[in-house]
Simulated scan of single mutants.
Amino acid sequence: MRKLILLFIAVSMFGQLRAQDLKTKNIIIVTLDGFRWQELYRGADSALLNSKFTKDKDEMTRKFWAPDAASRRKLLLPFFWNVIAEKGQLYGNRDMGNKSEVANPYHFSYPGYNEILTGFPDVRINFNDPNPNPNVNVLEYLNKQKGFENKVAAFTSWHIFPAILNEKRSGLLINSGYANFKDPKANERLKYLSEIQHKVPELLGPDIRLDFLTFELGKAYLKQYKPRVLYMGFAETDDLAHEGSYKFYLQSANKEDGFLNELWQYLQSDPQYKDKTTLIITSDHGRGEAPLEKWMGHGTDTPNSEQSWFAVIGPDTPPTGIVKTQTTTYHKQLAQTISNLLGFDFKAAAGHEVGDAVGSVTGK
């Protein structure tokens, strides 16, 4: 018994020392639903630009086309390639042999978000219905840690996230779809955004909020409430791809890259967040590639839609740029990576299988 007590004390002290060594005090997680690694690393796809899936081909070519992939991707995603590539890490460039994949067998949204946020590719979750998630997620775990209580929140465009994050059990602040932000302490900006969201065209239907509204609400919340952990989930890249609009898919990705730039600039201007915050960006699944029509879809019947990517920038992550090692990382590793960056061990507390952290992100 004495040996067990000493071992527990030693493990606890190691965790405390590790936390003291870390510079990351806050985490921002952003997902771009269904955004492909192909556009991230290669820029606009010439086959799709010149296909029936692209309206206004001349306009899109002028805006997003260049002879080489490095130039094309900078045109499409300048924040990724002018900031993260210089100061952070990018995973999943299969052209260089580095792979990033979802481990769940289904390759669509609820299973993908469950995997990212719980670290567990649960085969029971084979649906997009609003069924409460039985798995503990890393956000609710962090929300119970000292110094993080009521400092964790999620703003998402897709209305299913209260189920994915099991709002009733987790007690997290989750604002999804066209839900109002109801806190009476909210400032005028948040009240205005909550009201005006009901006056815009519901271009993606009554349940999926336009991403600019999700971003503006999340940013306003960040500025007023100063959370330690914030999740923003964007939806347009997936929905527009399903509709077969390559023009709007590219435009949405480009716009969301601008959101990320604006977010990062704010984080670097605020004393609470400056040089103390890690930003993690990823997608819940990939999409098809060949034949060409397969880019619209994903799932078990769409080859290669398990292929994904993720990017990280923060004070504890070495600025190696594109990761070129011939390895495969899985999205089930992200929950523990998030936890480790803040000095915690989600894997030990989750109560279910959790993937190991990505050591190269945490500086190990």
Rank of each mutant, 00 (worst) to 15 (best):
N128F: 00
I313G: 04
R72Y: 10
N133W: 04
S360V: 11
P315M: 08
Q145C: 08
L173M: 14
S245A: 13
L193D: 14
L4H: 13
P78D: 07
A235E: 13
T282L: 00
K144E: 15
N166Y: 02
V123M: 12
T24R: 05
I174C: 11
P315T: 08
Q336C: 06
K276M: 10
E202F: 09
L172C: 07
G297P: 00
D284M: 00
N133T: 13
H331V: 04
E353K: 10
T118M: 07
P291L: 04
K151G: 02
G112F: 04
Y266W: 07
K25T: 06
M13V: 09
L342K: 02
M232E: 01
L32M: 15
F234W: 03
N93E: 15
I164V: 15
F234T: 00
L213W: 01
I9H: 06
T329D: 14
A103Y: 03
N128L: 01
Q307N: 14
V323T: 06
G351L: 06
N166A: 12
H331R: 01
L22Q: 05
N98E: 11
L49Y: 01
E140P: 03
F148V: 05
S252L: 09
P206L: 11
S308P: 00
G43E: 10
Y113K: 01
P184G: 11
T300R: 14
P315F: 03
S305R: 02
I174L: 05
I338F: 14
K223H: 05
G343F: 03
I281T: 13
G92D: 08
Q307P: 02
P201G: 11
K52Q: 15
G88D: 10
L40H: 03
S339C: 04
I125S: 04
Y91S: 14
D356V: 06
R209M: 12
I84H: 03
A253Q: 04
I313K: 04
R94L: 10
Q145L: 11
D239F: 12
R42Y: 08
N82A: 08
L90E: 12
A357M: 13
F35K: 10
D238M: 00
A348M: 09
P130R: 14
I196G: 04
L292N: 09
Y110L: 06
T320Q: 15
E306F: 08
G43D: 05
F181M: 14
S51N: 12
E216R: 09
F148T: 03
S71R: 05
E188N: 10
P78S: 14
A348R: 13
N82C: 05
N135W: 00
G171L: 01
F346R: 00
F344W: 01
L172V: 10
Y231C: 02
E39Q: 12
A163Y: 04
L210M: 12
G119F: 00
R209F: 02
S100A: 15
G171W: 06
W81S: 06
L17V: 06
N26Q: 11
I174M: 10
G43I: 08
K74F: 02
R2Y: 12
D45I: 11
M60H: 06
K199C: 10
L117C: 10
T54L: 13
F35I: 12
R42P: 01
Q38T: 11
H159D: 15
L292G: 02
T362E: 02
R18T: 09
F234Y: 09
L279F: 05
F14C: 10
Q20F: 05
T118N: 02
G321E: 07
Q326K: 15
A103K: 07
D211M: 07
F120Y: 12
M232Q: 02
V123Y: 07
D239M: 14
